[in-house]
Amino acid sequence: MSDPSTSSAPGAPPVRFGIHGSPHLASAVVRAAGRDGSAVQMVGYDVEDPFRGLRAKELDVMIVKYGLREPDLALSRPVAYDPRAAIVGAHHPLATRASVSVEELADYDAFRCPGAFPAYVWDEVVPPRTPAGRTIRRRYDMGTVQGLMELLAGTDAVHISFQSLDTITPPHIKVVPIADLSPAPVALAWLRELEPGAHVRQFITDAENGSTAR
């Protein structure tokens, strides 16, 4: 792991780092890159238009999951993995389980691909069908995290998502591991046409080298 005192050039601006969901996953990537909080400015991005900040050049790099096929975006090697989990209300029939199967989740309504989010990535997040061929009913619209939590609290919906959300869910929402979906690879993306500054390139390299995903 890089030494935080030497990993950024003196006087370099903070890396503008786009994140969504739990900041703890992004913080782990930052630590693995040998950075402290002063070297990185975390900026939340909207899942309905996830790449707007990069394309508007308001971000230097962003955290993404699964492989992107966006021609204008470049992608790092995996820098982490995020185990899969079902997010449900505490009243839900599956809420007290130690783990669940994706086959069981097909009994409940899930969430549609939001806005301009790539449908091919959403198919990895919320598979249209289970391995046994059961259809996963993607019925509900995705919105804000707060809106998601409120909907889960009031229905039997399931959000097929990631274990990292257990750091931001309120007590009335439960995060249940999914035993038969593989963890999601986590990578860094940046605008291909815009050559990253030296401090951003070094951050990407250090995140790859410090990763536990190798």
Rank of each mutant, 00 (worst) to 15 (best):
S38Q: 10
G18Y: 14
M42G: 06
A12I: 07
D46K: 04
I19K: 03
P13G: 05
A12T: 12
V47Y: 02
S27K: 04
V47N: 02
V43L: 09
D36G: 10
V43M: 03
P10E: 14
V40K: 02
F17C: 05
D36Q: 08
H24K: 14
F17I: 12
H20R: 14
V43Y: 00
A26I: 06
P23D: 03
A26P: 04
G44L: 08
A39E: 07
E48Y: 14
A32F: 10
G37R: 10
G34R: 00
G11A: 13
S22Q: 06
G34H: 02
L25Y: 07
P10A: 14
A33H: 06
R35W: 02
R35K: 09
R35E: 00
A26H: 10
V29S: 03
G21M: 11
D36H: 15
G34N: 00
P14F: 04
G21I: 04
R35S: 01
A32L: 07
V29P: 01
R31T: 05
V40S: 00
R31N: 02
A39W: 06
A9E: 14
R35D: 04
P14M: 14
P14Q: 13
Q41R: 15
G34C: 00
S38V: 11
R16D: 12
S38Y: 05
D49C: 11
D46T: 06
S22L: 06
R35L: 08
A26Y: 10
D46W: 03
G11V: 11
Y45F: 12
D36M: 09
P14E: 04
S8I: 12
G34V: 02
V47E: 07
V30D: 00
G44N: 07
S8Q: 10
Q41V: 12
V47P: 00
V43F: 01
S27M: 11
P23F: 02
S8W: 05
P13A: 04
A12L: 06
S27V: 13
G11K: 11
Q41L: 11
A28L: 10
D46C: 07
D46P: 00
A9L: 07
Y45R: 11
A12C: 12
V43H: 02
R31L: 03
G18L: 14
R31K: 15
V40W: 01
R16C: 12
A9N: 09
D36T: 09
G34E: 02
